[in-house]
Design a protein around this nucleic acid. Structure first.
Length: 441
DNA sequence: TCTGGGGTCCTAGGACCC
DNA sequence: TCTGGGGTCCTAGGACCC
């Protein structure tokens, strides 16, 4: 039995394994004064819904997206009703459910619809936190007066406008905290609107199993279940001291939020900056081909660096990893003397240290790279003494290539070390590709 | 020399999310 | 359910310092 690392230090002798004896919970009235009204909205089967909005002939049919990934990444309610589930391999889907319509993901469209959907919310409230492509939070506190509508009416208007203008349906939850608003929006799906009033918190939580709570995942669910905590109400019935002594700090925040005390702020700042970027790819069958694996890593670095340059971000820190057929990770982390976003620098390091993680007899299923601690590329960060000079030259070259590619379309130019990965499985195209592409390094 | 008590900074890796 | 890809945040513990 694996114990969650976060718990290791604290779950010594003093565990209380008993069930909470009292199942009644009284809402803390002191909190009422600063009662907030938090709104959470969640797109219903969003990716697939956009496919249907683009092509209404698909309405009412079992549809999934994710063809290019090889697994079902989103599915319509009709597909779900058949027994299709997220993560199901496409080949298996085809065999088992030949009637299901499979589409490739069209992320540009999803992003467009997402923006439009959030803009409708912004007609009513200025500060909207775009939590993911199909989910947002907003603080509606006090808006009922100036808008001369109840909170329910505001939510109904938003739903109506999204359906009429975008042909999409959403589910909305309203409660006094973000965690509760998430519980509410999940309560009825699709096309739901659920409001949790403070006095109804216990009822909702008694019917919310612990793993459904935002922030409580598989490991913590298992840990809590062993201690008799099955639903969210069991969780909030524990003393705060018990939570503090047994779990890590984020769970204390969840405990308060579930009781109605708002601690998680709405953060409306646009997420244009990334603090890390990663690129990974799995393949099957698993392989031990050293050249192939290196070439995959090269491609990942090239792609991640292209994105980093697009956002004008650089870093000194990066890592690469191989994942074995048995899902074991072997990671190698590196620090440079100065930040860069030139792939040549990272690739030469991967080539140098690859054998620190690679083993001859082992079969690998995934490769990946991670750039982290990304920061704005600053003009004045020349490193005249170290590797920075070399990196700087490459950065200049890439700047030129990037602007060329913007003009003439994507990926005309790529690194020679990536060639193998980009042409895998396409037979008889090698010569053509060499003709068309400019290779360097 | 077999031995402190503390602070800070960094890293690796885990858990979680969609 | 034999498991894709892209993120964020947290924390224990080591390194280093006085």
């Amino acid at each position: 039995m694996k114990v969650l690392a976060n718990f290791v230090q604290k779950n010594g002798a003093r565990l209380d394994l008993s069930l909470p004896s009292e199942r009644s919970f009284t809402y803390n009235k002191g909190v009422n004064k600063k009662q907030k009204t938090i709104f959470h909205m969640d797109g219903d089967a969003f990716f697939v819904a956009v496919e249907v909005a683009k092509n209404p002939k698909l309405r009412g049919l079992p549809v999934v997206t994710g063809e290019e990934k090889g697994i079902v990444s989103a599915l319509s309610y009709e597909a779900k009703a058949l027994g299709v589930h997220r993560g199901m391999p496409i080949f298996q889907l085809k065999k088992q459910f030949p009637q299901v319509i499979i589409t490739p993901g069209d992320y540009a469209s999803y992003a467009r619809y997402s923006t439009k959907m959030f803009d409708i919310v912004r007609r009513y409230v200025d500060d909207v936190e775009e939590y993911s492509i199909d989910e947002c939070f907003a603080d509606l506190t006090g808006l009922d007066k100036p808008l001369k509508m109840s909170y329910r009416e505001i939510a109904e208007r938003i739903k109506k406008e999204i359906i009429e203008e975008l042909d999409l349906s959403v589910s909305i939850g309203i409660a006094s905290t973000k965690v509760l608003a998430k519980v509410a929006s999940k309560w009825k799906k699709p096309n739901g609107l659920t409001i949790i009033e403070p006095e109804n918190i216990p009822d909702f939580l008694l019917n919310t199993s612990i793993e459904k709570v935002w922030g409580i995942g598989r490991q913590t669910t298992e840990f809590l279940r062993q201690r008799g905590i099955r639903n969210a109400h069991d969780f909030i019935s524990k003393d705060i001291e018990w939570i503090r002594d047994t779990l890590a700090e984020p769970y204390e925040v969840i405990w308060h939020e579930l009781r109605g005390l708002s601690l998680k702020e709405i953060d409306p700042r646009p997420k244009t900056k990334y603090s890390s970027m990663q690129r990974t790819r799995s393949f099957h069958p698993a392989t031990n081909d050293r050249v192939f694996l290196l070439s995959q890593l090269s491609k990942h670095i090239e792609d991640a660096c292209a994105k980093a340059r697009h956002y004008e971000l650089s870093t000194r820190k990066f890592s690469f990893f191989l994942k074995t057929r048995n899902f074991e990770y072997f990671t190698y982390s590196l620090s440079l003397s100065s930040p860069t976003n030139a792939p040549e620098i990272f690739i030469s390091l991967v080539q140098r240290y690859f054998d620190e993680v690679y083993r001859k007899g082992v079969m690998y299923r995934t490769t990946g790279v991670n750039l982290f601690e990304l920061a704005s590329t600053s003009v004045s960060q020349f490193d005249l003494f170290g590797d920075g000079d070399r990196a700087h030259k490459f950065e200049q070259i890439h700047k030129q290539i990037d602007s060329l590619e913007d003009k003439y379309g994507k990926k005309v130019v790529y690194l020679a070390s990536t060639h193998h990965a980009r042409n895998r499985g396409v037979k008889g195209t090698e010569v053509d590709d060499l003709d068309r592409d400019i290779l360097f390094l």
